[in-house]
């Protein structure tokens, strides 16, 4: 199967570069922020960078099979389910602690 390296003048690796940049920003967000919602946003950014990767790979390498596109749709679903459960947990913690800083949760330390 012929796999074009450049579509509309844009090579595949540009997409991969943007996606890895997004992934790194998300990673930084999860590790550096002290707010559970900001950490959740970091995770969502990581998942979105994966979608960018998946769609780029699908379009450039294997556009005849729907696998890559379908996978991206499933990643949406997973991200939405995680966000729903995560926000519910964060609200529940906020009601008890009046804070959403995970570092303030320190009941469980030896």
């Amino acid at each position: 199967m012929p796999t074009p390296n450049v579509i509309n003048g844009i090579p595949l690796w540009w997409y991969l570069l943007v996606a890895s940049g997004l992934f790194a920003i998300g990673l930084y967000g999860v590790l550096a922020r002290k707010n559970a919602i900001a950490m959740l946003m970091g995770v969502e950014l990581m998942l979105n960078s994966v979608n960018l990767n998946l769609l780029a790979f699908w379009r450039y390498l294997n556009p005849t099979s729907a696998a890559g596109m379908a996978f991206a749709a499933f990643v949406f679903v997973v991200a939405a389910a995680e966000a729903a459960v995560g926000l519910a947990l964060i609200i529940s913690v906020y009601r008890t602690l009046h804070s959403i800083d995970p570092e303030k949760l320190d009941q469980l330390k030896l």
């Binding site: 999860v30 559970a36 950490m39 959740l40 995770v43 995680e82 459960v85 995560g86 947990l89 964060i90 529940s92 913690v93 009601r95 008890t96 602690l97 995970p102 949760l105 320190d106 009941q107 469980l108």
Partner: peptide, 14 residues
């Protein structure tokens, strides 16, 4: 609303 349970859940989730 046991805090240790909520803490465990939030840490596991993140």
């Amino acid at each position: 609303p046991r805090l240790e349970s909520e803490e465990s859940a939030l840490k596991y989730f993140l």
